[in-house]
Write a protein that binds this DNA or RNA. Structure first.
Lengths: 201, 201
DNA sequence: GATTTTCTGGACTTGAGGGTCCAAAAAATG
DNA sequence: CATTTTTTGGACCCTCAAGTCCAGAAAATC
């Protein structure tokens, strides 16, 4: 099956259309008919481009969304080299997830494809990439002696990932961003405290 | 509709049976037929005791599970009055969720009833209760001057909740408890650091 | 421009699963 | 013990949604 330019465009339209639908209002669950309606396609097309059916389609959308998660935090996430940068990053995250509200495209997808090995792999890849970037930021701070070099950067990065993940989950179900803010702020404070001494706020 | 003792027992059997099923192996999704099979009941009974159908039934199970979440952390969670107690609590959480592995009864339920207002209320109630107990623990430590009294106990408790939530979620999909351990450990370290000075590990 | 490949539309099948209904058995009631 | 209420079983219905199939339109290929 070789795809022509037209075919590729259609395939992309399906992915992006589904993504857009997840982004806006009451998804909860997505059906192939929803996707058909939004993207102006037929069942035949859906299975033509995604022979594996719904699962393969949703997984493709999940990969697309995963990239967005990272890129939405840029350029901040890629340059955590000063406390000011950390603050900007923190604000970007809070703003992004507040704006997103209870929808959370990736979350919805994961709920639906959750069990499959493919989904786990997508999630693991995203988390690993994300954690790696935070770790790089911490390492950069350590190189400039702004964070205690004895701190385990990878472990701290893992803590950030867990905290953000949980904070977003709570934001998703309550609509409140206080938990997300609290955990990120405290973890950043902790990074500072290792260097400045107690109560370094 | 007044329930006799027999009726009440059946109702309870349905809830606990469903709960047990969620706890053990590959749930992902639960159907009324699953529940029928496990609890040895008929459709008629299911709707007799839960006129609201599947949603009402699952919500009842969710409430049952929510109680378990708290009680599984006892007696540690109720008496966070020394660093040793905090460590025991931390170990209890890690052990509990590691043992549970990727199943997570409450998570499965929330995925399925997620959208409804009732589910949000159950989740919010659990989180509030949980956070309150952690806050009480922090306050106790502050009273004994083991934690900086200037620290916002409620905010710190919120951070713990978010961190645990995220750590469990990651454990659920990767099978690794490193994130959960990292975030809880770092937050506890942070509590200590506010009092002991920098690097108080 | 004939032929082969790719793309598109939509009717149809299939199955799962939630919910309804009613009648029989069992308890409670008095 | 007659009657009323509760409990139980299971056949049936209905909807929704994934997936199949095939024929016709549009591109590509030579």
């Amino acid at each position: 099956m070789a795809l022509t330019a037209k075919g590729l465009a259609t395939r992309q339209r399906i992915i992006e259309g589904t993504s857009a639908h997840l982004r806006s209002d009451v998804p909860g669950t997505v059906t192939l008919d929803d996707i058909r309606a939004i993207t102006g396609t037929s069942k035949g097309q859906l299975f033509h481009y995604f022979p594996g059916g719904k699962e393969e389609l949703l997984l493709a959308v999940a990969r697309f969304e995963a990239d967005r998660v990272i890129s939405d935090q840029q350029p901040h996430l890629g340059a955590l080299t000063s406390w000011a940068a950390w603050t900007r990053w923190r604000n970007a995250i809070v703003a992004r997830y507040r704006a997103q509200g209870p929808s959370c495209p990736l979350g919805t997808l994961m709920d639906q494809v959750g069990a499959t090995p493919g989904a786990a792999e997508v999630a693991a890849a995203l988390l690993a990439r994300w954690q790696g970037m935070i770790r790089a930021g911490i390492a950069a701070m350590q190189a400039e002696d702004l964070v205690d070099p004895a701190l385990d950067a990878d472990r701290a990065a893992a803590a950030f990932i867990a905290g953000i993940q949980g904070g977003v989950q709570i934001l998703r179900s309550t609509g409140e961003s206080t938990h997300l803010e609290a955990v990120v702020d405290l973890l950043i404070e902790h990074l500072r405290a290792t260097r400045d001494g107690a109560g370094g706020r």
